[in-house]
Amino acid sequence: MKRFIIPALVATIGIAAAPAVQAGELWRATGLQQPESALFDAANNRIIVSNIVGNPGDADGNGYLSVLSLDGKIVTQHWTDGMDAPKGMAISAGKLYVADITKVRVVDLASGRLVASIVVPNAVFLNDMTADHTGKVYVSDMLADTIYRIDGDRPEPFVRDALLASPNGVFADGGRLIVASWGKGIKPDFSTAEPGGLLSVDLASKVVSPLPGARRFADLDGVIAIGDTIYATAYLTGTLYRYEAGGTPEAVAHFKPGSADIGTDGKSILYVPLMNEGEVAALKLD
């Protein structure tokens, strides 16, 4: 696999650091190690966080998962060890699926025990994950313009399309996947020749469609939807965007560079991993 490097301070090169967000912030969990994803586990009233601990593309065995309480306290720092550079996560049928470079790790949700590793053939850099209403799991491959689908333990290419433009965040929303793309022509500092935007992939037809008014506006990382509103982060600037159909993306919060794969309780709270700060911030939405 090609070496894939995102320096911890890449976003500080030529980019002004935005101030930490104030309005709506409930708490910050500290003491984490390059937290990339924060997933709300509704069945167990907790937040699961993936910690990369090193180069996001290195199979170095340093990565692990942590558990936070809903008020931002670390319940278990090393809940699941034995990973390389864990990133996005999804829950399906009592199991936690974790994107880990070229594998998808499967964790027993009750115990935190790593029970399986699913090798995804031809994967380059697996990033975010989501599960649809039938329990099928999807994982983006950012460096291959591909989204894979996993049914049980069987991975298969779901859609491969240049329109995905380095797909990072994925979120199952009814009969579609919402995709946050990083953009085209990734440069050494991880800026892009053409910034990314928000896309929709129809689960039945697999047709990829840009969301109107949300094309080519930022190098996007995480994405979630609450009702008809989509939220997405831009890693390099730390910006949190809000988008509604018929409108254009609006910046609603500013963090330091490094905001990654956001999670939500599905109602009114967002969980924002701040990779470069080693923190997760909880925001109360208006």
Rank of each mutant, 00 (worst) to 15 (best):
T229K: 14
V223P: 12
A253E: 04
G247P: 01
T239P: 00
G227N: 03
G222K: 15
Y231S: 01
V252R: 10
G238C: 12
A253L: 11
A253K: 13
G247M: 05
G246D: 08
Y235V: 06
R242K: 15
T233G: 05
I226P: 01
R242G: 05
I226D: 03
G247E: 11
L236T: 13
A225R: 14
G238N: 06
T239Q: 14
Y231R: 02
G246F: 08
Y235L: 12
G227H: 07
T237D: 11
I230Y: 10
T233E: 09
A253F: 02
A253C: 00
I226M: 05
I226W: 00
E244M: 07
Y241A: 01
Y241W: 15
G238V: 09
P249C: 05
I230H: 13
P249E: 11
E250I: 09
A251M: 04
I226L: 05
A234R: 04
A253I: 00
A232N: 08
I224L: 04
A251W: 04
A245L: 12
P249S: 07
Y231I: 02
Y243K: 10
E250P: 01
A245W: 00
T237M: 07
T229F: 08
E250Y: 03
T229D: 06
A225P: 05
G247D: 08
G246V: 02
R242D: 04
Y241Q: 02
A251P: 14
Y243F: 15
A245D: 11
V252W: 06
I230R: 04
Y235K: 02
G238M: 08
E244F: 02
I226A: 00
Y231K: 01
D228T: 14
A232Y: 09
G247I: 08
V223T: 12
A225K: 14
